[in-house]
Simulated scan of single mutants.
Amino acid sequence: MAKRGRKEKDNWKKKRRQEYLEKKEFRYYIFCEGQATEPKYFEGFKRYIEDNPIYRDMVLIEIEGCQAETMRVIGKAEEYVRKNKIAKGQIWCVYDKDSFPASDVNGVVQRAEVLNQKNPDVQYYAAWSNECIEFWFMLHFAYYTANNHRSEYKKFLNEKFQELGIGKYEKNMDNIFEILMNDGNPKLAIRYARRIIENGKGKTPAEIAPGTKVHELVEELAKYLPEEVRVLF
Rank of each mutant, 00 (worst) to 15 (best):
Y125F: 15
C93M: 01
D96K: 07
S103W: 12
P120S: 03
V105S: 04
P53I: 02
Y144H: 05
F233K: 08
A87D: 14
N182I: 10
G107M: 00
G165A: 03
M58L: 14
L60A: 14
K24V: 12
C132K: 03
Y95A: 04
Q90C: 09
Q162W: 10
E220P: 10
R72W: 11
W92N: 08
E62L: 09
E79R: 15
A209M: 11
V218R: 02
D183E: 11
L157K: 01
T204M: 05
T212W: 03
V229M: 01
R56E: 08
M181Q: 11
Q117F: 10
R4T: 09
E159F: 15
P39H: 05
E207H: 04
M1W: 08
M138C: 06
R194D: 12
K88A: 14
D10G: 12
V105L: 14
E131T: 09
E163R: 05
A102Q: 08
K46I: 09
M71R: 13
V231R: 10
S129T: 07
E163H: 09
N119E: 11
A206S: 13
L225W: 04
L232F: 01
D57Q: 14
K14I: 11
Y48N: 08
K168T: 15
A77K: 04
D10F: 12
R111I: 08
S99A: 12
R6L: 06
V94M: 03
Q117C: 10
E113S: 05
G184T: 08
P205H: 06
V59D: 03
A189I: 11
E134N: 03
I30Q: 06
F135N: 09
A146D: 11
F233G: 02
K3Y: 13
A209P: 11
P186Q: 13
K40D: 08
I179G: 07
K46C: 10
V108S: 01
G211H: 02
M1Y: 10
K88V: 07
H149I: 06
R82I: 03
M71N: 11
I190P: 03
Y125A: 12
